[in-house]
């Protein structure tokens, strides 16, 4: 009896085996995700870099030239892959939509946390959640049937262009930026507010000088996150931007973004051709930008811990 227990104490059991199995299973699952991420980078980079190494496009030309016609070659014999119009388009819609969305989002967040934290919060919280959940093609469709005609009537032109893209993206990122701003404001400890009010500051002074200021890193994170969403959004933008790979002259002329050109072009080019490789270079640029946004967010978040 005694010896039997002693023996068991030194032998593997069902529990040991289950633990071993569990460790392996959970580790493999995790490894799958990491592998996917690594291979995304590997595949997109190997395709995207071919433009520069196999097709001999100059990197600077790619970033600064304005003629996008990678199917044909220029006078030096290299493909005409000037991506500046798309780069400008992507940054324009991203920055403009963030500029409009930020005050709206922060104001709504202040409303939800400082002005009407009970009733207002209870109503607006599900509103933002639902808005986040609306699929981007629906935003694109509404953009096409409401925003584009509206822009056409009000500002002239075809209606397609940066302005229409900005409006659509504004509505799309507004709920995301708002709910992240709410989180940032709620993270400000209650006693900050109480101390400020106790010192005789008015409610607005408290909101402005204490609450907003101490949550600035969180608010900045929210805005950058919204920008990264806007930069990467494909279909909704593609549906309203007009899809002309030209440097935009104004906000209502047809333009394009990195994502819109990718969406339209990938199916019309032959794998491995210069035209196709140039598209993958755009995808690589998109990937790198999303990395940059990620990095910025991490940098800000590290600074702004309570």
């Amino acid at each position: 009896m005694n010896d039997e227990i002693k023996e068991k104490l030194l032998k593997k059991s069902r529990a040991t085996r289950s633990e071993f199995r569990g460790r392996i299973i959970s580790f493999v699952c995790t490894a799958i995700i990491v592998t996917v991420v690594v291979s995304i980078f590997y595949f997109v980079a190997s395709k995207g870099l071919a433009t520069f190494f196999s097709n001999k496009v100059n990197l600077w030309d790619f970033l600064s030239k304005t003629i996008w016609n990678p199917g044909s070659t220029d006078s030096h014999g290299s493909p005409q892959a000037g991506a500046l119009p798309m780069i400008v388009g992507s940054f324009a819609v991203t920055i403009l939509s963030a500029v409009i969305a930020t005050p709206f989002a922060i104001a709504t967040a202040v409303f939800m946390t400082e002005i009407s934290p009970n009733k207002g919060y209870k109503i607006l919280q599900p509103v933002t959640e639902l808005l986040v959940g609306i699929p981007s093609v629906v935003y694109g469709f509404i953009g096409l049937s409401v925003v584009v005609p509206f822009v056409r009537h009000t500002f002239g032109g075809t209606g397609f262009g940066i302005l229409a893209g900005t409006f659509v993206l504004f509505v799309m990122i507004l709920p995301t930026v708002t709910s992240m701003s709410v989180d940032a404001l709620r993270a400000v400890p209650r006693y900050y507010r109480e101390a400020s009010l106790a010192l005789g500051a008015t409610r607005w002074q408290t909101i402005y000088k204490v609450v907003l200021r101490s949550s600035a890193p969180g608010l900045a994170t929210a805005v950058v996150f919204g920008m990264s969403r806007a930069f990467g959004e494909a279909l909704a933008v593609q549906m309203v931007i007009g899809n002309a790979a030209l440097l935009p002259h104004n906000l209502v002329s047809p333009a394009s973004t990195l994502t819109s050109v990718l969406t339209m072009g990938m199916g019309n080019t032959v794998m491995g051709s210069a035209a196709n490789n140039a598209l993958w270079s755009l995808a690589l640029l998109l990937l790198l930008m999303s990395l940059v946004f990620n990095l910025v967010i991490n940098k800000i978040a590290k600074r702004g811990k309570f």
Binding site: G232, E233, A234, L262, L287, S290, N294
Partner: peptide, 9 residues
């Protein structure tokens, strides 16, 4: 990184 990648990518 994966969660912030554009879905088109």
């Amino acid at each position: 990184i994966l969660s912030s990648l554009p879905s088109i990518v």
